[in-house]
């Protein structure tokens, strides 16, 4: 048999090397020497970078998914809050008249014990007093029918008087009507006069002597002499004073916001000249100390 291939040429040396490699592996396996730890560690050196890249990649994906989830939640939250805000705005607009009326009722309820009279609440159902020959229409609470010349007041001040009445409704002649006359007095000088309407929210006091000293800003109260209002109810404040022959011209800004009123009190017919302040028996009220009276 020819022994070619297993000599010492370069090709034969290669074959010897393969044989040595095979035998070395065989001996290694038979002796059971390799635990694989060093091999695995060396392979970990190669897998480390790819594992680091993989970790970064997975971390980026998780963070991105979380950001997307958070963004979606935030957007849905914003949308929900937007709807809630819109609903609250609608509700607020719907309840605004009721709240305004409730605030007014609260002020009126505070006024009632201070006046000390049997007041009767009424709701203003029509207010077109700026139109020619018009006024305010009120609807009183249940009770006997109203009578003409009953006084009408609000928490801020005097409103006017009943002009005509029916069992369910009554028309009111406001203080600023041209044909309205009300007995008033000035707070400092105690000079009395007659208040006549001159325009929306304005009125003028007649029959004040030019000898009187009247200051702008001075409070004006009812005098009680017309037997419609008791003495001491706030009417308004002096806004302008001028001399007109033998008398003073005194222009008054009315205290009651006649355009914004919803609830009023109706005074009893022919009230007493003086009203008793709460807790003071028959002592006279001091109008200068009370802004409301």
């Amino acid at each position: 048999m020819k022994a070619a291939g297993w000599g010492w040429s370069a090709r034969d040396l290669m074959r010897w090397t393969v044989l040595a490699l095979w035998l070395g592996h065989g001996v290694w396996v038979v002796l059971g020497r390799g635990t694989g730890t060093a091999l695995r560690r060396s392979l970990d050196l190669f897998t480390g970078p790819s594992q680091w890249v993989s970790m970064r990649w997975e971390g980026w994906k998780v963070a991105r998914a979380r950001r997307i989830s958070d963004l979606a939640q935030a957007q849905s939250e914003i949308e929900r809050l937007r709807w809630e805000l819109e609903a609250l705005r609608v509700q607020q607009a719907r309840e605004a008249p009721e709240r305004s009326e409730a605030r007014e009722a609260t002020r009126l309820l505070g006024l009632k014990p201070m006046v000390g009279l049997d007041l009767r609440a009424a709701r203003i159902v029509v207010n077109n007093r700026k139109a020619p020959f018009s006024g305010m229409v009120i609807e009183p609470a249940l009770g006997p029918s109203l009578l003409p010349d009953q006084g009408v007041i609000a928490a801020e001040g005097v409103v006017g008087r009943i002009w005509s009445a029916s069992p369910q409704q009554a028309s009111v002649l406001p203080l600023d009507a041209y044909n309205a006359s009300t007995g008033v007095m000035l707070a400092r000088s105690r000079a009395t006069g007659v208040l006549q309407g001159t325009g929306p929210g304005r009125a003028e006091i007649r029959y004040i002597s030019s000898q009187e000293v009247v200051q702008v800003g001075e409070a004006v109260f009812t005098s009680g002499l017309d037997r419609v209002f008791p003495r001491g109810l706030l009417v308004g404040h002096v806004v302008q004073v001028w001399t007109r022959g033998s008398e003073l011209g005194v222009e008054v800004g009315l205290a009651a916001p006649l355009d914004r009123l919803h609830l009023v009190f109706v005074l009893p017919a022919e009230p007493p000249l003086e009203i008793e302040p709460p807790g003071q028996g028959s002592a006279k009220p001091d109008p200068a100390r009370s802004g409301k009276r």
Partner: peptide, 22 residues
């Protein structure tokens, strides 16, 4: 060797490369 190193299954390695050479 790479297969046994990444497989992490055998307590003693070297069998697969030996069979592969064969």
């Amino acid at each position: 060797w790479i297969l046994e190193g990444t497989l992490r299954l055998y307590p003693v390695v070297g069998g697969t490369p030996w069979a592969d050479i064969t």
